[in-house]
């Protein structure tokens, strides 16, 4: 089968496109470091989808995502002077992780108080997941991921949904490389088990 003669051109342009974007972002970061808020605004436009997705994947309420994202970019701006481009995304993920944890902690405190005064949230309340993830299977998997302990959940998210390599995960999480690999493997096994049980509860068989 003859290869499409344009294919290499498409591939090269796609790679070139990525390379150009990386160079552009590097310049934006340098300008933002010098106080150029317009440059920083462009960076926010580019990176905010990543931050939003990561925050949501970690189990934050959809309604909290704008607040979390705002806090992330405020903190990133504060520490921007210390970043090189190569480290920028690592910092972005680190900060998102920290802000997300802080928000979750506050939310847990609130939920504990709500339960205490007898307004226990019903297990059957329809969460907004239904409006955000349309497919039942996706919702189920998303909820199974939420049930994982944080130390397994985060490597799973970074690996599958953000294509992070082990080395970058180790930097983001401030753990050793071997610990990343162990947690990823264990997390995958736990997730499979969780998913199988969820499907059984739903009355489905999945081979």
């Amino acid at each position: 089968m003859k290869q499409n003669p344009l294919q290499n051109r498409y591939i090269n342009e796609s790679i070139k496109g990525k390379g150009e974007k990386a160079v552009e972002n590097e310049h934006l970061i340098e300008r933002a470091k010098k106080g150029d808020l317009q440059a920083y605004s462009h960076l926010i436009t580019y990176y905010s989808p990543i931050v939003e997705r990561f925050a949501y994947q970690m189990g934050n309420s959809f309604a909290d995502i704008p607040d979390i994202t705002q806090e992330v970019f405020i903190r990133v701006y504060r520490f921007l002077d210390g970043f090189s481009y190569a480290k920028f995304t690592t910092w972005l993920y680190k900060i998102t992780l920290n802000v997300s944890r802080d928000f979750k902690r506050k939310e847990n405190q609130h939920n504990n108080r709500v339960k205490k005064i007898g307004n226990e949230p019903s297990e059957n309340v329809i969460t907004p997941q239904g409006r955000i993830l349309r497919q039942e299977e996706d919702r189920m998997l998303h909820e199974c991921i939420q049930k994982l302990d944080g130390k397994y959940q985060i490597p799973i998210i970074l690996y599958y949904f953000h294509e992070k390599k082990y080395e970058e995960m180790a930097e983001i999480l401030s753990i050793n490389l071997s610990t990343v690999k162990t947690r990823l493997l264990r997390g995958k096994n736990l997730l499979k088990k969780e998913l199988e049980e969820a499907e059984k509860r739903e009355g489905r068989l999945n081979g």
Binding site: S41, H42, E52, R53, Q57, P66, T69, I74, Q135
Partner: peptide, 25 residues
Amino acid sequence: RMELLNQSYKKIPDQTNPSDIIQAI
């Protein structure tokens, strides 16, 4: 399944308004 979920995540609409963040900064 993870790949399908990833595709669904990417379809979630963005909520961030950069100018709000710049104002906050």
